[in-house]
């Protein structure tokens, strides 16, 4: 907006304002009704949905589901969409930071005098697209629960490790056979890529954002390592997989 447009806006606004009503009691009454409504909603949610408390935090057991609060789902999903490991920092930090900077700069990017949404097609369409993609990612995140069973057939000596892996929340990010997510590399053939020692080192000392399993009891960890090392993917019917390194 140049100086003339600014003055024009202020003049027009002063006229509209002069014709308006005082804040108290008119706007205050509306605000109060809205606040009462919000209070009723919060109280109802509290009564109906309650406040569950899960089992106590325990670094040694591993039956956990690392799930954030629902309004972070869209960020979490972003990680799934952007997969190559060298781009992970871009998804975790880069995209949110860029979005925040753009939000800060918005008033300086869009300086036109027009305020009606239908006459600012770029801003309006961009806004609607962003809302939809955030909504869609949130929906994806909500729908993709983390499964905790692996349907793959394994030799009986690996059965124990399979259960440990299934219960340890690995499937929230990794895919094993038909189960699991796409956030991290697929593990279906991890045994062909890493030997036991390497798998163990990765479990103790993983690349972020994977949590460390160093606290896991030795017996469970050994079973886990044995099972993972047995995943060689010889099965011809299975789709050959490209992304395999690292855990």
């Amino acid at each position: 907006m140049n100086q003339r447009e600014k003055e024009e806006y202020l003049r027009e606004y002063a006229l509209l304002k002069a014709k308006g009503k005082p804040f108290f009691p008119y706007a205050v009454a509306k605000d109060a009704i809205m606040m009462a409504f919000v209070m009723v909603v919060i109280i109802t949610m509290s009564i109906v949905l309650g406040a569950e408390l899960g089992p106590k935090a325990d670094p040694t057991t591993t039956t956990y589901v690392p799930r954030p609060e629902w309004y972070f789902f869209f960020l979490f999903e972003l990680l799934r969409v952007i997969k190559p490991p060298e781009l992970v920092p871009f998804a975790t930090i880069g995209v949110p930071t860029i979005c925040m900077i753009l939000l800060f700069l918005l008033p300086f990017i869009d300086r036109g005098p027009e305020r009606r949404p239908e006459r600012r097609p770029i801003a309006t369409i961009a806004g609607i697209l962003i809302i939809f993609s955030m909504g869609y990612l949130t929906y994806l995140g909500a729908a993709a629960g983390s499964p905790n069973s692996i349907e793959m057939e394994v030799a009986p000596e690996y059965e124990k490790g399979k259960v440990v892996v299934a219960q340890s929340g690995c499937l929230a990010c990794h895919k094993i056979g038909e189960n699991g997510g796409d956030l991290g590399p697929h593990l279906t053939e991890i045994g062909a890529v890493l030997d036991k020692g390497a798998i163990r080192r990765t479990l103790d000392n993983p690349t972020a954002p994977m949590p460390s399993f160093a606290g896991l009891p030795e017996e469970k960890k050994a079973a886990m390592v044995d099972f993972l090392a047995s995943l060689k993917g010889e099965d011809e019917g299975r789709i050959q997989n490209d992304s395999g390194e690292e855990g």
Binding site: A57, D58, R67, P211
Partner: peptide, 11 residues
């Protein structure tokens, strides 16, 4: 400090 909050925060 239940399981869910602990592990989600680690991630």
């Amino acid at each position: 400090f239940d399981q869910r909050s602990y592990w989600a925060t680690i991630v």
